[in-house]
Design a protein around this nucleic acid. Structure first.
Ligand SMILES: [Mn+2]
Ligand SMILES: [Mn+2]
Ligand SMILES: [Zn+2]
Ligand SMILES: [Zn+2]
Lengths: 146, 146
DNA sequence: TACATATTTAAATTCATTACAATTTAATTT
DNA sequence: AAATTAAATTGTAATGAATTTAAATATGTA
């Protein structure tokens, strides 16, 4: 089953009309688990849907959020990011390459009695393993070169 | 020791010039552990500092962040919030009363090997204990009244 | 087909944050 | 003390993602 079919099936499950735009937005999110921005989605879909409006992307993603088809990731303080993976997981943004990585996490919160938790967002920032390696290599080259 | 003195001491520790504005912004944060917005701080200090500029609040908070005197809380997707408590703790925002509560948290993250973590932000949303009680009381009244 | 409803579009607006140049204040040097 | 330099503060304008509005288009049903 390709992403288009998967998106269509998910929309039908939720009782949401599976319009072309909705299918394509959801399929894009499923096939690009990189936490894209509205702009990313817009620019990608625009190529094949010439009259596409950015407002529609916003509306569609709002609808998806209400239906728990996507979750909003606010780790990047500039733009919102969207994730079709709605299972519990944390997000790590690299300060070098800006990439956002998923990670599994288990938390214990002793002092929230009587609180009703609706959503959890766990955001870490730092240097990803890849960029860390690159930095070390660069450092080694320098010390060898001199 | 009052908050003004505490703020002054903290600034001196960091080797930052303890100007009147800086002392007052930091003292406000120390005395209002409610995660205020820039607007909150600005409106409060404006009363005693007539020519205060909002830009200065932004600049001051940026400086504080660099010096690890405050941490930025991005739980409220509209406005940034600031916290003079820089120790590890999570934040819970009530969807009813909008209040932001601190909570202690312990997390294990098995799959981030080689990643260098610089900052952690843990945001929960839902209904706080107080609002939860209020809602239940309202429900009881209704069922008794009818 | 006709009509109501849902979806999509484009333009205008909002508003927190940032950029920047000008001014004021404080520290350092003559 | 005066002059010079550096730092802090101010006000205005610009930025840009997100929202609002209203109009256009598509879709389902009778
Ligand atoms: Mn994810
Ligand atoms: Mn806090
Ligand atoms: Zn990286
Ligand atoms: Zn509450």
């Amino acid at each position: 089953m390709d992403y288009i079919e998967a998106a269509q099936a998910l929309l039908q499950e939720k009782g949401v009309r599976a319009s072309t735009i909705r299918i394509n937005v959801l399929a894009y999110l499923l096939s690009h688990p990189t936490h894209p921005t509205v702009e990313h989605i817009y620019q990608a879909l625009r190529k094949s849907m010439l009259t596409l409006s950015k407002t529609t992307i916003y509306n569609t993603l709002d609808l998806f959020q209400q239906q728990n088809l996507v979750r909003v990731i606010n780790i990047d303080e500039k733009e919102m990011r969207y994730d079709a993976n709605t299972t519990e997981h944390g997000h790590f943004q690299c300060q070098e390459c800006k990439a956002i990585t998923d990670f599994t996490i288990r938390c214990s919160t002793p002092d929230l009695p009587g609180f009703q938790i609706a959503t959890r967002n766990i955001y870490y920032r730092g240097i990803c393993a890849e960029c860390q390696t690159k930095k070390e290599e660069l450092l080694n080259e320098k010390s060898n070169g001199n």
